[in-house]
Amino acid sequence: QWKVGDKCSAIWSEDGCIYPATIASIDFKRETCVVVYTGYGNREEQNLSDLLSPICE
């Protein structure tokens, strides 16, 4: 189960590419979260089910 502060990978809606991110907040009722893309600072809402394991850098 994901928690705030977890590192993950998420698909950015603008280009469909996968980027490393950190979970900033979680809404368990809606099963969504807000991620912050590492190195970019962009925030975006994602479905918890769409999150991927962190990418090894």
Rank of each mutant, 00 (worst) to 15 (best):
Q1D: 13
Q1Y: 13
Q1K: 14
Q1I: 07
W2E: 13
W2M: 09
W2T: 09
W2D: 15
K3T: 11
K3A: 13
V4T: 09
G5S: 03
G5E: 11
K7S: 11
K7C: 12
C8E: 00
C8W: 01
S9N: 11
S9F: 15
S9K: 08
A10Q: 05
A10Y: 06
A10P: 02
A10T: 03
I11A: 04
W12Y: 10
W12L: 05
S13P: 04
S13R: 10
D15T: 10
G16I: 08
G16P: 07
C17V: 08
Y19D: 04
Y19S: 03
P20A: 12
P20F: 12
A21Q: 01
A21L: 04
A21W: 07
A21C: 15
A21S: 02
T22C: 08
T22I: 14
T22S: 06
T22N: 02
T22K: 03
I23T: 03
I23R: 00
I23F: 01
I23Y: 03
A24I: 15
S25G: 04
S25M: 07
I26F: 01
I26T: 02
I26P: 04
D27R: 00
D27K: 01
F28V: 11
K29Q: 14
K29I: 14
K29W: 10
R30M: 10
R30A: 12
R30W: 06
E31G: 15
E31S: 12
T32V: 10
T32H: 03
T32G: 06
C33E: 00
C33N: 00
V34E: 08
V34T: 03
V34C: 02
V35P: 01
V35D: 04
V36S: 02
V36F: 02
V36D: 01
V36E: 13
V36G: 01
Y37W: 05
Y37T: 03
T38A: 11
T38H: 11
T38N: 08
T38C: 13
G39K: 08
G39L: 12
Y40H: 15
Y40V: 11
G41H: 07
N42C: 11
N42V: 15
R43Y: 13
E44A: 04
E45M: 06
E45C: 07
Q46S: 06
Q46W: 07
Q46P: 04
Q46V: 11
Q46Y: 03
N47T: 08
N47E: 02
N47C: 08
N47L: 13
N47G: 06
L48H: 03
L48P: 01
S49L: 05
S49I: 12
L51I: 09
L51H: 02
L51A: 03
L52E: 03
L52V: 05
L52N: 02
L52A: 01
S53T: 08
S53L: 15
S53R: 13
P54T: 09
P54V: 07
I55V: 11
I55C: 12
I55F: 13
C56G: 14
C56H: 14
C56I: 15
C56M: 14
E57G: 13
E57I: 13
E57A: 14
